[in-house]
């Protein structure tokens, strides 16, 4: 596996609070990686460290084979769309493109114009007058026109309505289909990521809980339902992710490489959202910040 983003024991502390702790990760190239977790879990911190906007307190991070923002050539290889997709309110759409062309050596001006034209964005419009969805599309267009190897997006669709959200992800996925592009995007809304991500990193309480290929994660996680059996010891190849018990029934989420053989359980599928929620709430039913289920 070629990795586009590698971290080793990466940590970031603000005064006494650790925003990210002991983070060791390899994010594969050519994939769309979802970084999920509740608000305040450390997602933006991890992305800030990956872009070089933040400096680590401990450990190290490599992006496209070098420390983040090492030099101008390296900066050109990584694109970043910050949270809430900021733009210069006083500049028009066309002025944003001119600025992008000036600042970036490999600028794809024709592609950017074509994309904005298809989206129906008026080049003369000031960015401050754009709707949230249009501004997000402008930011994405700028990020793609830079022709980066890795595009990092921090909560790009969180504030968008469902239609704008779908259109945004559509443009992003079409860009992935057109050329070799690795994408890392964060979200606290898992349902957004279900169809676009093929790799997933779950971050809770400033720590990585689970990371891996989405289909592998789905294939190895199961929901077991059966008569109440608290304090049950699972076979050694199974790991308890989450459990809940009523007076009659037990429901477990387990990670298992092999099949579940115990006939007492009814074995069910987990949606990606259920899987992430199971990691967020943890084995002892400790409640993490609730995950928004917006569809």
């Amino acid at each position: 596996m070629t990795a586009v983003l590698v971290t080793r024991g990466l940590g970031k502390r603000y005064r006494r609070r650790w925003a990210l702790r002991d983070c060791t990760l390899q994010i594969p190239a050519g994939r769309v990686t979802g970084l999920v977790g509740p608000n305040g879990a450390g997602k933006s911190t991890l992305l800030g460290l990956a872009t070089g906007l933040l400096a680590p307190t401990s450990g190290d991070v490599e992006v496209c084979g070098a420390p983040p923002a090492r030099d101008a050539a390296h900066l050109a290889r990584v694109g970043f769309v910050a949270q809430d997709t900021p733009a210069y309110a006083g500049l028009t759409v066309a002025e944003h493109l001119r600025l992008g062309a000036r600042l970036n050596p490999g600028w794809d001006d024709e592609g950017a114009r074509r994309r904005l034209d298809r989206l129906g964005l008026d080049p003369g419009q000031r960015a401050g007058k754009l709707s949230g969805g249009q501004r997000a599309q402008l930011a994405l267009t700028l990020g793609l026109a830079k022709r980066p190897e890795l595009l990092i997006l921090d909560e790009p669709v969180a504030s968008l309505d469902p239609l704008a959200r779908r259109e945004f992800l559509q443009v992003l996925m079409e860009a992935v289909a057109e050329r070799e592009l690795s994408v890392v995007l964060s979200s606290h809304v898992v349902s957004d990521l279900e169809r676009v991500c093929d790799h997933l990193v779950v971050l809770v309480d400033s720590r990585v809980q689970v990371a891996g290929d989405v289909d592998d994660l789905r294939a190895t996680h199961h929901r077991l339902t059966g008569p109440r059996r608290p304090g049950l010891t699972l076979p050694s190849d199974q790991r308890l992710v989450h459990e809940s018990h009523t007076d009659r029934q037990s429901t477990l989420v387990v990670r298992a490489e092999g099949p579940i053989l115990d006939p007492a359980w009814v074995v069910g599928n987990l949606s990606l959202e259920d899987l992430v929620l199971a990691y967020m709430s943890g084995p002892a039913e400790r409640r993490a910040a609730p995950l928004e289920a917006v569809r």
């Binding site: 050519g30 994939r31 769309v32 779908r166 259109e167 992800l169 559509q170 996925m173 079409e174 992935v176 289909a177 169809r195 676009v196 991500c197 093929d198 289909d215």
Partner: peptide, 18 residues
């Protein structure tokens, strides 16, 4: 085509290829 499916569903092209 993969592109058509991606455009219609806003889905990851790798998923369609797989």
């Amino acid at each position: 085509t993969v592109k058509e499916v991606v455009a219609a569903l806003a889905i990851n092209p790798n998923t369609v290829l797989k």
